[in-house]
């Protein structure tokens, strides 16, 4: 058994996760419960003993020892696995949140852009154009008919306005597409966040994180000492045990 014990110790040690006190603090952990290596090994030991008691010839013992050991290691590993899965899920959900924040920011930007007041800008531009046409006509010969200037001005502004309108429509469509795409990505992210959190929830439920409250006793107690009172109680305990033996093991 000594060999088994030390190899188990090694195995358990390998499975253990290293964590620094600082990183625990960062996560807000103030108390840790440490399960002693010896305690774990003795648990395994007990598991082995327990299965041995019920069975077997000595020739079969080795097989049982191995099987039990494997069983326990499997358990430990699955525990480790669970913890890893939880960490992965936590990380994933954090990343998803960050990505969602970024996307939302982008969307907000686009929306803000869309509502910038274009009209004010156009008015300045229009005035510029009108001025330019006027000076063009002023320099041209025989074109001092004010009616004609006004007509040309009107025509040009109309053309420019139409042109602008087309560009605006095209731009708005492009932006809408972009916003729409961003929103779709946001929704997908949100869905997968929900999924991840559900997984996280499942994992923590599986781990059954409830710690429990420690008993005041380290060992099995039982009646101690002598005297008439204790003897009588011992008899009562024996009677109760006998009744339970009959009930639970049929005799």
């Amino acid at each position: 058994m000594a060999d088994l014990k030390s190899s188990l110790k090694d195995a358990v040690r390998k499975l253990a996760r290293q964590t620094s006190v600082d990183s625990l603090k960062k996560r807000g952990v103030k108390q840790v419960n440490v399960l002693g290596l010896d305690r774990i090994v003795s648990l395994i030991d007990e598991a082995v003993h327990r299965s041995l008691r019920h069975k077997l010839l000595s020739s079969e013992r080795e097989a049982v020892v191995d099987a039990t050991k494997e069983e326990f290691l499997k358990l430990l590993r699955s525990n480790e696995e669970l913890r890893a899965r939880q960490e992965r899920a936590e990380e994933e959900s954090n990343n998803l949140r960050l990505e969602m924040q970024r996307l939302q920011g982008e969307i907000d930007e686009r929306v803000a852009e869309a509502s910038v007041d274009l009209v004010a800008g156009y008015e300045g531009e229009n005035a510029q154009i009108l001025l330019q046409i006027q000076s063009l006509f002023a320099n041209a010969k025989g074109a001092d008919d004010p009616g004609l200037v006004a007509k040309v001005q009107e025509l040009v502004v109309k053309l420019v306005t139409e042109q602008r309108h087309e560009v605006e429509i095209a731009q708005a469509a492009a932006r809408d597409r972009e916003i729409h795409n961003l929103q779709r990505r946001l929704k997908k992210l949100n869905d997968s966040l929900e999924f991840t959190e559900q997984k996280l929830d499942e994992v923590s439920r599986m781990k059954n994180v409830e710690e429990g409250v420690a008993s005041v006793y380290r060992d099995v107690q039982g009646l101690k000492g002598g005297g008439q009172e204790v003897e009588r109680k011992k008899e009562l305990m024996a009677g109760l045990f006998a009744a339970n033996m009959k009930l639970q093991k049929g005799g």
Binding site: V12, N33, V34, G36, L37, A214, S215, V216, R218, V220
Partner: peptide, 23 residues
Amino acid sequence: MSDETTNANDESAAGKDHGVLYI
């Protein structure tokens, strides 16, 4: 994890034992 059964809980820091719970 350590080679000894250590428990950083407040109670056991005060020397409280544990191991068998009666209900």
